[in-house]
Design a protein around this nucleic acid. Structure first.
Lengths: 358, 358
DNA sequence: TTGCGTGCGGCGAAGGTTCGCCTGGAAAGC
DNA sequence: GCTTTCCAGGCGAACCTTCGCCGCACGCAA
């Protein structure tokens, strides 16, 4: 492939200086209409594509934001990126992905490549890095950053959902329906989400006068098969369980399968509740009660905050909580009649409280 | 934010010319050990981060590949990107995303921004653009390109799965089990995948001596709810159906739900088969027979081909077919005993044929 | 002492832009 | 007829690198 055509090539063709060409192509100063069309014509003929690298070098802006992703294989972690991309596009920015995969680089290395490419800002979608102190250190003062998860050391604006409230909301839904022996299948132990949802679960049990029983907690590692096994273990150990909270919908699906294989009817013999409200949750058998986590929106809002930071607009708050809301379906029995998607009416639900708070 | 530290800043600190500094930092020519460590020390102290823009300007390589994505909200279209990112990372490259969303830009605009940023190559993951002749035109001769879908005009290497063979494989599985009235819920009409899988379905029916009946085809638009409705319409219209082929697993899940709501047992009263083999397919009720489409691998291979193109290595073939294979589970009855994941033994299955062919 | 090889480091140029300033000339004002 | 104004377009510099070449000084052999 030959050298791409440059401003100078266009200028030569049009018989003007390359600076004048630049003026025309970026609608700068005053240029005679005749030369203007001559230049535009030349650019068209040659198929000129401006070199964003050279431009960025001088303008100090790349119109690109970096995203640090971890665990791209997990669908749910990919969703915020979709929102980020959408919002970035609205602002005329592109998205550069750097991921910390299992086999992959350290978060440090990923951040370095993003910084080297002089992205205008960075969004962290990497729970894997939430314990890593070097991340915040490397970023400090270099470039605007927003995270969708906790970051060690703090000082970085965060956009996320109050996961403790989610655990609370879910478990209260079960206790308020009379359940006392409530099992839970949790995600990966080292994640804050896992611990916070679990803490919410524990607190809700205590509120209902139930003593949390460690025997009712099983690990499902966010995985459908692991959750299937976890469900069996849980029911082998505690056959008196009447409800199970799976920390995400994928695991809830594995759990439904396990219950089906054991011949237990949902919700009559065991209620099931999930988390996230993935699209298929509405059509599982039976349809899954769950909590809608606004993942796309989290990405969009994070990007919006980042652009505020980039434009040096003052931030309303260093932490934005995205609203979560309970979606009541058949897997916990008697959906509210009429619209099954509404949270139960009556006294204020935790969902309402959270929604208002965000 | 102040100006980031440059090579010159480091050089000044170390008391050498910036060119010498460059030599040290890129292990170039001969530099005295003493000055070398002095320079490295200065770089460390100042927190120097090289400017990839300036480097790329001169080396004519950005170590970045562009991905044109459409419909990022569809999980399945996101999966190849994960594979691409992984492979790119192995080659020390980053991934720049440009997406053509519903509300979004034209494919032309997206390609332009990627070209302006001087990506080393481009991968198209955009079935939305498969009819767009301008895409191939804009790209011609400018930069290495690989696609995971058909591209109008051709001339671009493609890495994908033979979707006609998939439709064939699925439908043969059903006809070979004695089904004659076989419905199908198809994806979006304007996609090649949809048409090809449908063509495979039709051909398999003819092979089995069954006359394809247009009344047995319903549109589900790749969506779980739309497929739920489509399932109902299909069964209202043709209650004698004994099997249904949903063009993806998401729709199959909607369909399973519709069958459940109608009180029809799967597979006894109606067999169901999906497509894609998404993770939850193994744990639906009943577990879903489907075809595994290697989406991650498609992305990885596409990236590999792109790097061949970039390195100007000769391509083995302008079209690479990724193997698909039938995964037999309970939703079509009597899974093969032992390992349910194996294709049925006996005479060569279409899956084997396809696998060998790729 | 002269000559030469070599290790070390400097220098200039180039890559493709943007930006501010300058100049030449024509039109306009007195 | 002279000065002012303004328009069109040119020029130089800067952004931060990489790369090839050159020169200096030192050490060693003749």
């Amino acid at each position: 492939m030959s050298r791409p055509v440059s401003l100078k090539d266009v200028a030569r063709r049009a018989g003007v200086s390359f600076q004048t060409t630049s003026k025309v192509l970026n609608d700068g100063g005053t240029v005679a209409p005749a030369t203007r069309i001559r230049i535009l014509g030349a650019a068209e003929e040659l198929g000129y594509v401006p070199n964003a690298l050279a431009r960025s070098l001088i303008t100090r802006s790349t119109a690109t934001i970096g995203v640090v992703a971890s665990d791209m294989s997990q669908t749910l972690l990919l969703q915020p990126i979709v929102g980020i991309e959408r919002e970035a596009r609205r602002h005329g920015h592109s998205v550069l992905i750097g991921s910390i995969d299992r086999e992959g680089d350290t978060s440090e290395a990923v951040l370095r490549t993003l910084l080297e490419r002089r992205v205008d800002g960075i969004i962290l979608v990497a729970p894997q890095a939430e314990e890593d102190e070097r991340v915040a250190a490397l970023l400090r003062g270099r470039t605007p950053v927003v995270s969708t998860h906790d970051v060690a050391g703090g000082g970085i604006p965060v956009v996320h959902t109050d996961q403790h409230a989610v655990g609370l909301m879910v478990t209260r839904h079960l206790t308020s329906r009379g359940h006392r022996r409530i099992g839970t299948i949790i995600g990966a132990r080292d994640r804050h989400v896992t611990r916070q949802r679990l803490a919410g679960y524990t607190q809700a049990l205590r509120e209902a006068g139930v003593d949390p029983d460690p025997a009712l907690v099983e690990e499902g590692d966010w995985d459908v098969d692991a959750a299937y096994e976890a469900g069996h273990r849980l029911l082998d150990r505690a056959p008196d369980i009447t409800a199970i909270f799976a920390q995400n919908d994928i695991m809830a699906i594995g759990l439904l399968s396990a219950l089906y294989d054991r011949g237990l009817r949902v919700p009559d013999q065991c209620a099931v509740i999930g988390c996230d409200d993935i699209p298929v949750a509405a059509r599982t058998i039976p349809p899954l009660t769950t909590v809608r986590i606004p993942v796309h929106e989290t990405g969009e809002v994070a990007a919006r905050v980042l652009f505020d930071l980039i434009a040096e607009r003052p931030l309303a708050s260093p932490e934005i909580l995205m609203p979560a809301r309970l979606v009541h379906r058949a897997s916990t029995g008697e959906p509210h009649q009429g619209d099954a998607e509404e949270p139960p009416a009556g006294r204020e639900s935790p969902a309402d409280a959270l929604e208002r708070r965000a």
